[in-house]
Design a protein around this nucleic acid. Structure first.
Lengths: 145, 145
DNA sequence: ATAACTGCAAATGATTTGCACAAGG
DNA sequence: CCTTGTGCAAATCATTTGCAGTTAT
């Protein structure tokens, strides 16, 4: 996602306000690459501004998605949607053991972006998620045996 | 997914029963490549056996997922998880206009399965979904302009 | 000033669960 | 028989919504 200043400008263009709540949520998100759930964000927000409501967190997340600043990642957590704050095009690696979700830059993997054989279809974007064991869990499993 | 006979055998192994409800749900699913939601399946079931409950449909879908006969596809429908009945390894194409979800055999596209640059990770499987316009919607859009 | 925002409480909606009765093997 | 399955109603839980009071611009 972009810097707070950039997002502040975007909000202004849209006649939306930069409230203290929104500023805090944006600040928290921009230093969070862990793909938090709405409730994870809420917890971090409340630790600083205890009176903020879940509604405001949900509202702000929804707006940031609409602005294209963050993306939803579905189907990886029992406890709701996770949010992706990484700007560049990338894929995901999800560890089925510890639940960590890693951003994999396209250049790091060949699983990206090809679309031969798709005649007739207009492909706007491709999302790829790889499932398996992250290095830490893989090593831990090897040690156990 | 496998044939009714095969699944019946698997159920037997697991000491599970082949009830009329399950038989009907399996029959409906095996001829459905539309990636229906639980409620879509329920509607089709009720049209034949009006007394079947949603609970039974949900239970059976969950069991079939556990058996590896069908797969959940998340994040494509506002109205819940969709179910994938296609056995072979494949990718998905989702039409952002009409909501159709097409199975794309791996051999039809190069967006599949590569995993160079993933040293340290153990990749068990890769899921790729392409988003865009299906041929029908693409043509309809072209005609409008 | 005033349109946008916040926070509360209630609503929503997909899915799950508890439980008494039914039925497949 | 007796274990597993069914169907109902109630519970769950993430997310949304209605609304009255608040605030950024």
């Amino acid at each position: 996602m972009h810097s707070l200043e950039h997002i502040a400008g975007e909000l202004r263009k849209r006649k939306q306000k930069l409230t203290p709540q929104r500023r805090l949520i944006i600040e928290i998100l921009s230093s969070d690459r862990s793909h938090p759930t709405a409730d994870d964000v809420y917890s971090r927000v409340v630790a600083v501004m205890p009176e903020v409501s879940r509604t405001t967190v949900y509202n702000t997340l929804r707006e940031l998605v609409a602005m294209g600043e963050i993306r939803e990642v579905q189907g990886l957590s029992e406890s709701g949607v996770r949010y992706d704050t990484y700007g560049a095009e990338h894929q995901h690696f999800f560890c089925v053991q510890c639940g960590v979700l890693e951003d994999i830059p396209c250049s790091s993997s060949s699983a990206c972006c090809g679309q031969e054989g798709m005649e007739g279809f207009t492909v706007l974007r491709t999302e790829t998620t790889m499932y398996g064991y992250c290095p830490q869990c893989g090593e831990a499993n090897a040690r156990e045996r």
